[in-house]
Amino acid sequence: MQIEFNAKKRELQGTSASRRLRRANRVPGILYGGPDKPQPIDIDHNELYQHLRKEAFHSSVLTANVEGAKQMCLLRDVQWHAYRQIILHVDFQRIDAAHKIHQKVPLHFVNADIAPGVKTQGGMVQHVLTELDVSCLPKDLPSFIEVDLKDLDIGQSVHISQLAIPAGVEIAHHGEGDPVVATVIIRGKADAAEATEAAAAAEASAAATAASLEKKAAPAAPAEKTEKK
């Protein structure tokens, strides 16, 4: 998927300059990496906001059009306002078509509704992983990796080794073994586990409250009197 966004070179830097940009509906950012020095940029807030609503923008190779000069890059970081839907800053990393990149790719789970463990056995799908770290050339980067659940019975799982990985893509898994991606569990057990966790949390909260009240109610220790000689 080809996704391109427009940006301008940002000459003025610092807190005051960034505030002025945000008041003008622009988002300050940085484009770094590769042989060139980091380039401060700013982007139209509405354009960037609409891009960020799309899953593919977070995991695809992007094209930054900086005043007519186009560069391939990856989204690396987004800073949001604490409680408003306002983007404060964004980071992009330049990439080279001839060198492999590392990127997290989302997992798309399909056919859960027809899995025997769900459809006829009353189970539910538990997603253990929702994304995978992959290594590949930019041209081979997939927008997502599909996880087919159609054959799962209760108690069965899909592991990383069972996924259909596109050609040219390697899973950059750093742990040991063959991690579970998704599994079908008994719905009652899931509800019981959630209830147990909630009860434990409530018990811990009640104990903390009781301890706090007891501490407040305890009389203060009398001050020791100094004996005069």
Rank of each mutant, 00 (worst) to 15 (best):
R19G: 06
F5S: 02
L88M: 14
I160V: 15
K54F: 02
P116F: 00
K189C: 04
D42I: 07
A220T: 10
H51L: 13
V118P: 03
E227N: 05
V169A: 03
G14V: 13
V90I: 14
I3E: 01
A167D: 13
P116E: 01
T63I: 15
A221F: 02
E227Y: 02
I41H: 02
G175P: 00
A17F: 09
V61N: 00
F57Q: 09
A207F: 02
L52R: 02
A207R: 05
R187W: 02
N25G: 07
L152D: 00
G122F: 08
L75Q: 06
A195L: 13
A200P: 00
L88K: 11
L107S: 04
E227W: 05
L141F: 04
H99C: 10
F144K: 13
A182W: 05
I186P: 03
H173E: 12
V180Q: 01
K119I: 03
I86Q: 15
N25Y: 11
E131D: 15
K8M: 13
E55Y: 04
K225H: 11
E4L: 13
A206Y: 06
L141K: 08
V147A: 03
G68V: 08
Q50D: 11
E224V: 14
S18I: 04
S59D: 02
P219D: 04
G122Y: 02
G123Q: 09
N25Q: 15
V134D: 08
L152K: 01
S205Q: 14
K9P: 00
A217S: 11
I154L: 05
I101T: 04
D91I: 01
R23S: 14
L52D: 07
K150F: 09
F57H: 06
A164V: 13
I30T: 09
E170H: 14
A210M: 10
A210R: 05
R94L: 07
H45G: 08
D148V: 10
L31N: 00
E176W: 08
T63A: 08
K37H: 12
